[in-house]
Amino acid sequence: MSKATVLASLVSTSVLSLGLAGPAQAVSAVDYAALGDSYSSGVGASGQSGSCLRSTNAYGPLWAAQNSPASFQFLACSGATTDDVRNTQIPALNSGADLISITIGGNDAGFASTLITCWTTTDANCAAKVNTGKAYVANTLPGRLDATYAAIKAKAPGARVVVLSYPLIYASPATGCALSTAKQVAINDGARVLDEKIKERAQAAGFVYSEVRDDFSGHEICSPDPYLNGVTLIPAQNSYHPNNKGYANGYLPAFRGSAG
């Protein structure tokens, strides 16, 4: 299977946290729901199943397993956009939810198609595609995020909502990678712009924003101990998603620190 074919499959399946030590702490009165896209459903980790590619090794199920909330709704789905969250996930959300986590926005901004372009064409084309995504993030995504956050607040007005960021994909820059330095820098720049806009709109909604980049620092693709998958052949959708370590040591600590 060619790299282009592998990356093409990302369009329909991808976007684009507590260590395992220590005793579980019961949160018996908390009703928790994990919303969002593939970075919340657990794509990239082992144990994915169903059409939404949900994994018990995603940060949401890991947190629930260790904290024993009163209930846990795992509604995140691979490939989800803001429209999917509003039209499919929020209608299924328990209106009495006390705690909600979400990653969303990467699919809206065309993250997967950007990666395909950067892998299969020139540095100039990669930069142009990233710039197109940045323009979308600046001009269109804010309204979509605002509508999504408002819908969450309307459905579960008493919930503490934690909006998690996306990690940077590469070190600054990584050496010995298949992609050129120019492409790595462009992709990371696009991710930073996306995270900054997500942070801005989450805080405007009165939600908690949790940054995962520090937790992934030193563990990007091409690092000695990566928390992210590079381009994978089987299964192809794992490409550019956190691996088991990424969810357990990256996303889970970031969520735990913000869950309250």
Rank of each mutant, 00 (worst) to 15 (best):
V15A: 07
I198W: 00
I152R: 00
T56M: 01
G79I: 13
Q237W: 08
D214I: 11
D225A: 12
G47T: 11
L93T: 14
G50E: 06
A21F: 13
S223E: 14
G176K: 03
D31M: 06
L168D: 13
S258A: 15
V85M: 01
C126K: 01
N244F: 08
C126T: 11
I116P: 00
T148L: 03
A156S: 09
D214H: 03
D123F: 00
F216W: 11
T81A: 04
A259W: 04
L164H: 02
T103L: 02
S239L: 06
S113L: 09
S217F: 06
S258G: 07
R256N: 12
N67W: 07
L115C: 13
L145I: 15
P226K: 05
I116C: 08
Q25T: 15
Q89I: 10
S41V: 07
I100W: 01
Q237T: 14
G22R: 03
A8Y: 09
Y251N: 08
C52R: 00
I104W: 02
T121D: 09
K155W: 05
A34R: 01
G218M: 09
G105T: 15
T103S: 07
G230K: 04
S239C: 09
A26T: 14
T181I: 06
P224V: 13
I169C: 01
S180Y: 03
V27G: 02
S223A: 13
L179R: 11
G50T: 07
P91C: 04
S95Y: 03
D84I: 13
I169T: 15
G260S: 07
Q73A: 12
L16T: 14
A254K: 02
Y170P: 04
V130T: 12
S165F: 03
I187L: 03
E220H: 11
A124E: 13
C77Y: 03
K197W: 05
R201F: 05
P173R: 05
L35A: 09
H241Y: 10
D195E: 07
L233G: 14
S41L: 00
K197D: 12
P69S: 12
S28N: 07
G176V: 12
A58R: 03
A92N: 09
I100F: 00
S223N: 11
P253W: 02
V43I: 05
E220T: 15
K134C: 08
A26V: 13
Y59N: 05
